[in-house]
């Protein structure tokens, strides 16, 4: 752990990077507090807040009762009056218990009050499938919040972004939801020291290519990159864009890539229908980039079903490296 890489960057896991961001923010700003279920001595369901209660005390690392609506609402009220709370939902699925406070209150208060109020709350939401936790602990509901003006919705794919996005979210005067992928918590990668911000609303080209554009977020970025390497062996050069932010969405980076490749595929873990892919596809179809398309747009999302328990079914329910590879190949060969 914490080994120095050749580039002078330390290698941290995704969860260590998030924890480091929280610690940096709490050291620098006494108004930053953590709230959530079992985030104190237990360290959180995924151990992301491990040991922070020892460093900052129970007044700043607050275990909440199992009251998601109330807990989120307390965070909203605290943010409205001068604190910067980071509220951890134990699973993103549990945000449904708090929709009222997230959607009706946090997202709308600035607008309803004509700019006279600010709600700088950060919600952290462990998300995604692949853990065998079945239908109520495995969902990817980030697109729901993409439909809500007033929110910002982020999906870090790497430890570096996980830290930089959380610090950027804390500096942002509006409510930010960060969907962290449970399967990425143990993933390691280089992370800069100190404080830095990953810009909110800026996508990143993770792999440059010329033949097909694959837009992905969160863990799907890694699956898309793996698929792209396999395709490269057969002469198909895919460009992989890490979306990073669902709201606001970086139109320009996507459009520039589509103008270059003429082929677009969107890969996401949420249910395919009415999802991130629909928004991006429509955005491209409405733009000048439409004229550059040489093939129909493809969406790869989750099956039209709750996330199943059986491991084979669970795997089949969401895009995997092989399905992404096959779909990109068909798209590149104009077999769609």
């Amino acid at each position: 752990m914490n080994a120095m890489s050749d580039a002078g960057l330390r290698v941290l896991s995704y969860s260590e990077a998030i924890r480091e961001a929280m610690a940096i923010a709490m050291e620098a700003d006494p108004t930053v507090i953590l709230m959530g279920e079992d985030i104190g001595v237990y360290g959180g369901a995924f151990q992301v807040t491990l040991d922070l209660v020892d460093r900052f005390g129970k007044d700043r690392v607050m275990d909440t009762p199992i009251s998601e609506l109330g807990g989120a609402g307390v965070a909203v009220g605290a943010a409205l009056t001068g604190l910067k709370p980071i509220y951890e939902f134990q699973f993103s699925d549990f945000a449904m218990l708090a929709m009222e406070q997230i959607v009706n209150q946090a997202a709308k208060l600035r607008y309803m009050l004509g700019g006279e109020a600010s709600v700088p709350v950060v919600f952290r939401l462990p998300s995604g499938s692949g853990t065998g936790a079945a239908a109520q602990h495995s969902q990817s509901i980030e697109a729901w919040f993409g439909h809500v003006p007033g929110l910002k919705v982020l999906q870090p794919a790497t430890p570096e972004d996980a830290k930089g996005m959380l610090l950027a979210a804390l500096a942002d005067p509006d409510p930010v939801m960060i969907f962290e992928h449970k399967l990425l918590y143990k993933m390691k990668g280089p992370v800069p020291e100190g404080s830095y911000h990953t810009p909110i609303g800026k996508a990143l080209v993770r792999r440059a290519g010329t033949d097909v554009t694959i837009v992905a977020g969160s863990i799907m970025v890694h699956r898309a990159l793996e698929a792209a390497e396999k395709l490269a062996a057969e002469g198909i050069n895919a460009e992989v864009i890490d979306l990073r932010s669902i709201r606001p969405i970086d139109h320009e980076t996507i459009l520039a890539s589509v103008r270059k490749t003429g082929r677009l595929m969107v890969v996401y873990e949420g249910v395919k229908a009415f999802g991130v892919g629909a928004e991006i596809s429509a955005m491209v179809a409405e733009s000048d980039a439409f004229d550059y398309l040489d093939a129909p747009i493809l969406r790869l999302g989750a099956a039209d079903a709750p996330v199943p328990y059986n491991p084979d079914l669970e795997r089949a329910a969401v895009p995997q490296v092989d399905t992404i590879e096959a779909a990109a190949r068909r798209l590149a060969r104009r077999e769609v």
């Binding site: 108004t31 009220g77 605290a78 409205l80 604190l83 009222e100 009706n104 209150q105």
Partner: peptide
């Protein structure tokens, strides 16, 4: 801090405002 169109919407928000006072 505002009226509210949602019945009960202000209850947790008030608790949050009180938390701010205590914390600060």
């Amino acid at each position: 801090l505002g009226a509210n169109g949602i019945v009960g919407g202000g209850l947790p928000i008030a608790v949050g405002a009180a938390l701010t006072a205590k914390r600060l």
